[in-house]
Amino acid sequence: MDKECKERTEAMNPINRILLYFTLTVIVLSLAGGFSKPSSELYRNQVAVLMYHHVHDQDESSSTVTTGLFRGQLTYLQQKGYHFISLADFRRFMHGGSVPDNAVLVTFDDGYKSFYDNAYPILKQLGIPAVNFIVTSDLADPLAPLIPTLSKEEIGEMLRQSPGMYDFQCHTDNLHRMIGNKAALTSVTDDQGNPISGDAYNAKIAADSAACHQKLTELHGKPEAADAYAYPFGVFTKPAVQLVRQAGFQYGFTIVGEMATRASDPMQIPRINAGNPQIQPANLHQIIMRRIETVKR
């Protein structure tokens, strides 16, 4: 700094002098690369698989979120730098393929009609893929359940309008129910709760899984499309998993609240519950952040 410049600087009041030095420092550091753009990477080589059930503005339950909250959660995650992937992307990831940093897979259970009426329009507008695990026996009469479910026509429309974006997979054919206090999938009993033999149990699970696979094949028009299964109530056993796999399902989704990695057992893929009305957008981001701390980056 020359003598004249030094004299002018010393003549400044202290506040102006601090501002001048700060400005010069910013300029120098910027030219030297001292400030770089913050990285948008929160995590890599793992996927936050989110679980929802019902999106509705009148119904209320611990697994029902309003359309406003659903949109708010997804929009918030997009703004935070998350990247949403499809089930096809997730399959490739599990086989060694890459996914974007901060990858998220949106899943739904139960195949409620509210997916078509309320969730699908939001997902489509935001450009976010999703997979819905449906109870295929409900396809025969989708208005019969207490909460109406998706029809073949609605599923077909979504598959045609957005190929590869929206997928529909198995949540059993007719085992999404309880037998006494046990899930039908794992209960070694008949429908009246009477004990049955191991062979009879195996036949029960095999028949139900085969029925679900066949109905999904008819919906998609190709047998290889039916390959994912969500365990009802998140309950499963080793024998049940083996029987489901033998029916042709390669991926089993649980309700264990962790991140999915390539090291995850493909038949025990964890999911993070996002479909509780108490989970505000910022809370969902924080929940995911806490989960990645337990996974080797």
Rank of each mutant, 00 (worst) to 15 (best):
G127C: 10
G127S: 09
I128K: 07
F133L: 04
F133C: 04
I134P: 04
I134N: 05
T136L: 05
S137P: 01
S137N: 07
S137K: 08
L139M: 06
L139T: 05
A140I: 04
A144V: 12
A144S: 14
P145R: 08
T149K: 15
L150V: 00
E153N: 08
E154Q: 14
I155P: 09
G156I: 12
G156P: 13
G156A: 12
G156D: 11
E157C: 06
R160W: 11
R160N: 13
S162R: 13
G164I: 02
G164V: 02
M165Y: 11
Y166L: 06
Y166M: 07
D167L: 08
F168W: 04
Q169V: 04
Q169L: 00
C170G: 00
H171N: 10
H171C: 07
H171I: 07
N174F: 07
H176F: 04
R177P: 06
K182T: 13
A184H: 10
A184W: 10
A184K: 08
T186P: 05
S187R: 10
S187W: 08
Q192S: 15
G193N: 13
P195V: 01
I196G: 11
S197H: 05
G198P: 03
A200S: 14
A200D: 15
A200H: 08
N202W: 01
K204T: 10
I205G: 09
A207L: 01
A207Q: 08
D208T: 04
A210C: 01
A211H: 03
K215R: 15
E218A: 15
K222R: 15
P223S: 06
A225V: 09
A225I: 06
D227A: 07
D227S: 10
D227L: 08
A228T: 00
G234T: 03
G234Y: 03
F236Y: 12
K238E: 15
P239I: 04
V241Y: 00
V241C: 01
Q242G: 12
L243H: 07
V244Q: 00
V244C: 00
